[in-house]
Design a protein around this nucleic acid. Structure first.
Lengths: 232, 232
DNA sequence: CGCTATGTTGATCCATATCAATAAGTGTGG
DNA sequence: CCACACTTATTGATATGGATCAACATAGCG
């Protein structure tokens, strides 16, 4: 892997605490690859040969069953995905495809496991990362089971607004089609859900959202840190 | 904590690899408590003061929002819960209550974190445990998003059957009320879903289930290891 | 530019929730 | 050991959220 990418990978929480020696050992077998949009990087059920790191672009994690499919998460730079499968040496539970042109680091899973076995600091960093991932999925599970699709959309908009800086107007970072899937609804239903939020002061123009009455929307959405906060 | 419980706790994957010294350090501050049924052990949002280990009985992990509530998982002996919150020193994302009379070990979270910081083997064991938990939730997420309630019930029955030994007849290990919540539906809908599986040879008498035509049910349920297998 | 994928809108259907009533367990105290 | 109270399970009637199907509009993109 070209050394120019070392710093950005090294800066990840996952790798920042390990010794140079171990880090270089990991990078030795790694390589960087550029992918066009809509390329399927991995398929669920395949053995987990590589830990992936998204350097640029974005990746959709999705799953299929019996002809249906659903988006479970989107991975944005700079972060890793399918860490759990790599560590457990188990098949991927999700498929992954590039959404846009993306640069991705592939680190052989066996190298990750080898360093994991000998480097306590790396193991601790993995714990932090996995705990984070776990808690994110739990939040998402609560969101799905406790809220209607209209409530999920309202809270998603509030989260996205905060991520975008907190201004009244901001852009969706999803194609609506995929947003619908992430939120667990159909594209048609998402269209209607946006209409359903109009009474609460949400206006939509293409990908641009404006929240005209913050308190009104929040009173409807009832955001909750134990579901909606990024970090905790 | 009474030493009589040491062996069963020690036998857990989480603790089996650590040195005696560290294990005893953990147990020093721990204590065992007996709880009657329906006692709320922890509430979501509270600081994670203790890592819990269920020695006997069972515990329901659930969450509430805006007047609704849902069961997310059931913890059975012998296993731990709220490990992620403990390690991250973050508030609980789920509440927990005893289902039946239960004996539970409480290990101060700060002790767990202290050992975690110095014991690489413990850190690695935590990774394995968290990766397992993470993958379980992902499977559950796929189950929820990709299947109808009838399909979820059918696959749940097949999983439960396997866990019970694989015979045609077996018992539910849930109150139906909570099974409904775990499967993401109402109790009324669960009743009807059981009826809906009658054409596929499923008969119900109280808590006893009989699968009269295994292949027929499987053809309908389409179980998938990437959603339904316990281990992988 | 025109092609193709995405988004919107309308009509309808279906799954599931809700509300209400009854039945069946389950546990408690006399 | 039974009667009572209380919770849980079932059943029916109805409402509604959301899916599906179909038509059309729109926006990217070669």
């Amino acid at each position: 892997m070209p050394e120019q990418h070392y710093p950005e990978v090294r800066a990840l929480g996952l790798f920042s605490g390990m010794t140079d020696e171990n880090f270089f050992a990991l990078m030795r077998g790694a390589y960087v690859q550029n992918f066009p949009p809509q390329i399927e990087l991995i398929g669920e059920g395949e053995p987990s040969d590589f830990l992936h790191v998204v350097l640029s672009g974005s990746v959709d994690l999705f799953s299929q069953w019996n002809g249906r499919d659903t988006s479970l998460a989107t991975v944005r730079p700079i972060s890793t995905f399918i860490l759990a499968a790599t560590i457990k040496n188990a098949p991927y539970l999700m498929s992954a495809r590039t959404i846009e042109k993306s640069r991705i680091v592939l680190i052989p899973s066996q190298d990750v496991r080898a360093i994991f076995d000998v480097d306590g600091n790396f193991a601790r960093a993995i714990v932090t990362e996995l705990a984070q991932c776990y808690r994110s999925v739990i939040k998402s599970q609560k969101d799905l089971k406790l809220r209607t699709s209209l409530e999920r959309l309202a809270n998603y908009l509030l989260r996205q607004q905060k991520r975008a800086g907190g201004g009244a107007a901001f852009d969706l970072d999803f194609e609506k089609r995929r947003l619908a899937s992430v939120l667990g609804m159909t594209p048609e239903n998402l269209s209607r859900a946006f209409k359903g939020l109009l009474p609460y002061g949400v206006s939509v123009e293409g990908t641009r959202i404006t929240i005209n009455d913050q308190t009104d929307l929040e009173r409807f959405a009832k955001p909750n840190p134990l579901i909606d906060d990024f970090s905790t």
